[in-house]
């Protein structure tokens, strides 16, 4: 129940895009059509499910103060916390590469639809953001971290698909010229953000 709560919370209440503006760059660049948005969304969910738990384990057993105590009592004082950024990004980059190779080998059909998005993802802040929030909020179990990874990725996908759908329709509307494209997308995102705020405080 706790986990389900966390899942719902990370999709709706703490939505990456609407509450923290994470992953905005690719969000703005790719949200022109629903089809590509779904593709990128799935890729983000996919990578998020893999990288957040992996980074969780790395954080727990290597980086946190005292994490190395399993190597022996003399390592109990070692604090490698300052390496977390570089470790996370390295893991994300290599995971993305691995996933790309695995998908290419085992499922060419999936590779054809997801393939072009995967390289984009290594520098998508939603992925690094997911890992950093996981670290910041000090999730205690692997299950919590995995559920958070899934939920936050899913929330990002929901956001990009919603906005892409609106953007597809709005091309036929008479938007003031200077606002066309980028400007109106910002405003739409802001308004959906306000709508999403009404989820605040929901606890199951």
């Amino acid at each position: 129940m706790e986990l389900f709560n966390l899942f719902i919370e990370s999709i709706f209440i703490e939505n990456m895009v609407f509450m923290y503006f994470i992953g905005m760059c690719s969000y703005l660049a790719v949200s022109k059509t629903v089809k590509t948005s779904i593709g990128l969304g799935i890729a983000v969910v996919f990578v998020q499910i893999i990288t957040v738990p992996v980074n969780f384990l790395v954080n727990k057993y290597f980086l946190v103060a005292g994490a190395l105590s399993w190597l022996g009592p003399e390592y109990a004082d070692v604090d490698l916390g300052f390496l977390s950024f570089i470790m996370f990004i390295a893991i994300i980059a290599s995971m993305v590469q691995l996933v790309e190779m695995a998908v290419e080998k085992f499922s060419p059909a999936l590779y054809n639809s997801l393939g072009i998005f995967l390289p984009l993802i290594a520098v998508n802040c939603a992925i690094l953001g997911g890992s950093l929030f996981m670290q910041e909020r000090e999730y205690e179990t692997l299950a919590e971290a995995s559920v958070y990874g899934l939920g936050s990725g899913f929330g990002w996908m929901v956001a990009i698909v919603i906005v892409a759908a609106i953007r597809e329709k709005i091309t036929y509307s008479n938007v003031p010229k200077p606002l066309k494209g980028l400007g109106i997308t910002f405003i739409i995102t802001g308004l959906i953000g306000i709508a999403f705020m009404s989820f605040m405080g929901i606890k199951l």
Partner: peptide
């Protein structure tokens, strides 16, 4: 002070700049 206002402020800046 709430998040959505940030988006709307940037949109206003873009509007002014592009007009």
């Amino acid at each position: 002070i709430l998040p959505p206002m940030a988006l709307i402020s940037v949109a206003i800046i873009i509007w002014i700049q592009r007009s």
